[in-house]
Amino acid sequence: MTDSEIFSKLTNAIVTQNIAGSAQLAQEALDAGIPPLDIITKGLSPGMKIIGDKFEAAEIFLPQIMMSGKAMSSAMEILTPELEKNKKEGEETGLAITFVAEGDIHDIGHRLVTTMLGANGFDIFDLGVDVLNETVVEEAAKHKGEKVLLVGSALMTTSMLGQKDLMDRLREENLRDSVKCMFGGAPVSGKWIDEIGADATAENAAEAAKVALNIMK
């Protein structure tokens, strides 16, 4: 089986919510010598994008997206130890405070980005899903003076709007200059990031790690 065939099977396993198959294929891909990052970006992430697009188009609903999330998680259980082996030791990358916006429980992309940031040297403080902006601001205040990156995700347009409120609150509390802010999710665009005065967004988890490292320099 060629690499492209393995990637295609991985994508299909995510789309069809094949939990056991996702883990098995991830292991097969590793055994074939494919780097874990490629397995994620070329196999798993395209599947999650398809699922996200289908959800936005109301072609599937929450139970299906949660099952695809479980399939993704089963593959990541295989891949995360391999990512950890390549973790950059001794680099003071910073603290990444990760969260899903208030009113949103879609944590698949959030978990993947969190994993990728950890594998790239960030210390991780994961606040979880449906997180109040005041909670994020409180945590940012606790770590004022440190290298802090706020990483928020939102799959829905309604929860995305809370990102603007968060930026406003950070400015009100005189915390904006002490943190970097990166947001992602299906409705988030570069134009939106500029509009709310955040620092960056990214198309996928692998790019998110690269962007995060760059803005923390």
Rank of each mutant, 00 (worst) to 15 (best):
L175C: 09
T16S: 12
L213A: 02
K88P: 03
I193C: 09
N86D: 08
S74R: 14
I14W: 12
G162K: 10
K191N: 10
P46M: 11
N174P: 04
A141R: 10
G21A: 13
T11N: 08
I215R: 01
G90N: 08
T98E: 02
A198C: 12
R176A: 06
S189E: 13
Q17W: 15
A140E: 14
T16H: 15
L117N: 05
Q163L: 15
L149T: 01
I60W: 08
E173V: 04
L166P: 10
A202H: 06
E56K: 13
I51P: 02
I14C: 05
T41I: 00
E91N: 15
N86C: 07
E203T: 03
D38M: 06
K144D: 08
K9I: 00
L79I: 02
G33F: 13
G128Y: 08
I78S: 02
G33R: 03
T2N: 12
L79C: 06
T114V: 01
E77V: 00
G90A: 11
G47S: 10
E203P: 01
A57I: 04
I124N: 05
F125M: 15
G121H: 07
K164A: 11
G128R: 09
F61K: 04
S73V: 00
T11K: 13
D107M: 09
E28W: 09
V211R: 11
A75R: 09
L79F: 12
A75M: 13
I65Q: 12
L175K: 11
L175E: 06
E56G: 09
M216R: 04
A71Q: 03
D53F: 14
A212Q: 07
I6G: 01
D199V: 01
V136Q: 11
I14F: 11
